[in-house]
Amino acid sequence: MLYLDAGKYAPYVWPAYAITVVVFVWLIGDSLMRARRWRRAVEAREKDAAADNHERDAAE
């Protein structure tokens, strides 16, 4: 069904696909990790800010 026999072109075709996969995995991973990291940072800081406000209100 699928023609997967590359014959003499194998050392060119498969590395091309391999590096495409590698670059995409890296881009996807980096982008998602970045997004997660900063979203967590915002959530953490918002929680801190809320906690500070609570303390301030309680102290008054």
Binding site: S31, L32, R34, A35, R37, W38, R39, A41
Partner: peptide, 10 residues
């Protein structure tokens, strides 16, 4: 879009 979201959060 994901990267811009990361930027906005940052």
């Amino acid at each position: 879009l994901v990267r811009i979201r990361a930027e906005v959060w940052r």
